[in-house]
Design a protein around this nucleic acid. Structure first.
Lengths: 209, 209, 209, 209
DNA sequence: AATGAATGAGCGTTCATTCAT
DNA sequence: AATGAATGAACGCTCATTCAT
């Protein structure tokens, strides 16, 4: 009767799994994947180190799990957003805004103030973003099929979106206050009209964090 | 008389230093900085582990050395390229072409076949690219001052260039044959005219590696 | 219910900790502190190298632990001994006898057959003795206050006791059988009456090991 | 003709050997034997690391050489001193004064301010003192034969002298100014008359460095 | 004889993972 | 299912010694 997950045991299991995922999510954000140790993760929970392996087969596994879990939440939303797009301007803008909203929602994870004295550009590899990217290519292909986008080089195009999303998103996160809409506008105007379409700013103000 | 580097010993030293640098360069490309061990590096040479420390004081040192050495080669070229730019179209195109040429020249380092079953987007942290980025911001500011670029949001703009350079460059490297000019054209047309300016390709061809 | 140390696990832990301490104690005695490696220590147990760090945070830690643990056993005894002293003869004798008893009890540690072909007098840095010395100075000051000892130069006096305890104790340990009382008598008579008070021995017998 | 050591080559050799010995002597004093590296030693000379092994077969060898070299200088002096002794009081006093004079002459080597936060009593193992000890036993035996000393337990007695010489000498060195005669008086009075013979000092002054 | 780079065993320590309880 | 101690390979790095020049 409790086999299907409604018993007390099953609830504990669910809670433990969630606790581990949450801790891992935070640490991947703070330290990056390779600097995060399994000890760090279980140390943030009330569980013992061995318990980790009852839920995940290893460090890589939990990353996949995190990505997939997030994907399940993110996917429908991205789909809905983009499917509703009526023009390529709209499509691009929704794409970037969605990404940036996800980054903002997980802002704490990304605010890392460039460790290693700025030497290294440790990419964060956070599951949220990876999950989002997985959707992107299909949607772009679909958009081309639907005539929203011209038949451009999909590989390069998707790469360009990802690159801008990662880097501009990173820059966005470090500003106070974070302005998702402004960042999304910047990125989508760049894509839809190129530099000439970008808004001008007063010199000297542009780069202030 | 041979103290200044023309003797056999001095040649061996030079060769060893070069061998270590080359091995490190390759491994940073393949595994990224934090996944590369000093033992990996020395293992790619015919030297003994202790010898590494005759040349570099540690792992971070060799990264810096690699970056600085590359920067010395890359910097003047990037400067020359961009300073000669007469329009913003020209400026952008030269920027991307320079980056992509550097990536192509170090192609082997970047062809990594997405490790970890494509899971992680471990950014490569290669010294070549870092060195190039260091120049970029100054040049963009200068270009705005010279009126080549409108006074846009510099942070976001530089981020966007870096993102596109990294990701499109990555995609470019994985195609056979590598076509630097095509990639540079794609990226610069995106930046100068937005999506409408991008050339269309026959559907289904675009994404072939 | 077995959390407080009565379970099998807790017993194993206790035993392991004891095994590591014992091994370290023996090796510090045999090789001295700086010549003893963590691998040496763990190699004398049936444990794996990493296990050492479950119990002690490093080499210095285990030395401190050994010293403190011993001090806890030694301190009260030394105090009791010396506080009970009714004359300076008594005080000195009790002091040396206590030291020599400690050395005898840990005899195996000190029987080192003068390593390095007798070249070096590597002081043993054993925690037992260090712990004992820590007490000595206070007790001497106290004894002077109580009038048991004249107000002599405390620094030199304590140094002299330590020197004699270390060196005579070392010689004592190498005789078979070990005669603690005889060594204590020698040292205390030297201190209380000087050479004239020392017992004479038949020539040629004195120095046999 | 220059085979016997008067040529230019031979002079250089002599000077190199002396330079290495001097550097080693200083470092053994500063850092102790086991903390001194061969690199440290050659680093204090103008020679190259390999050259060290043209003169000494290793770290242990140089210690022996230092001890022996010193012994050759120290031996006759100690002998002269003690042979001239006319009473056991005189013998003991000359013994300690000689030791303390040697320590004072090499004072810089011993002034180490107890590293390791006082945890360890790293004995200095300086060749000068070791060399002196080697003479002691013979001289004591001789003194007993000559009737200067009663036939006491030679092992213990020599050990006691060494212990007091090392520890009181160490304490002496750390006082400013160093008073060799006072330390020698303290030690010899202790040995000849025991504690009752020691001079009293004003309380509170005794232990000031 | 002098050089100084090369060697490689060894150091203290970390950490993903296993396993007895 | 949970525990947390045990494991041992691997890490960055040091250093006495060797050896080609």
């Amino acid at each position: 009767m409790t086999k299907n997950g409604s018993g007390k045991r099953a609830q504990t299991k669910k809670a433990n799994r969630a606790a581990i995922l949450q801790a891992a999510r935070a640490l991947f954000g703070e330290l990056g994947y390779s600097e995060t140790t399994v000890r760090d993760i279980i140390g943030r929970t009330s569980l013992a180190s061995g318990t980790f392996y009852n839920y995940f087969s290893g460090k890589e596994e939990i990353f996949k799990a995190l990505r997939d879990e997030t994907a399940q939440q993110v996917r429908p939303r991205l789909r809905d957003e983009r499917i509703r797009a009526t023009s390529f301007v709209d499509f691009i803008h929704r794409t970037f805004r969605s990404f940036f909203e996800i980054m903002d929602a997980n802002r704490d994870l990304y605010s890392i103030i460039r460790r290693n004295s700025g030497l290294l550009r440790l990419q964060q590899d956070t599951p949220e973003i990876i999950a989002g990217f997985d959707e992107l290519r299909d949607d772009v292909e679909d958009a081309i099929r639907r005539g929203l986008l011209p038949s451009i080089d999909i590989d390069y195009f998707v790469s360009a979106i990802i690159g801008v999303a990662l880097e501009v998103g990173d820059a966005m996160i470090q500003r106070i206050p974070v302005d998702v809409e402004a960042a999304a506008r910047f990125a989508s105007q760049l894509f839809t009209g190129g530099i000439p379409a970008l808004p001008t700013v007063e010199p000297g103000i542009a780069s202030k964090a």
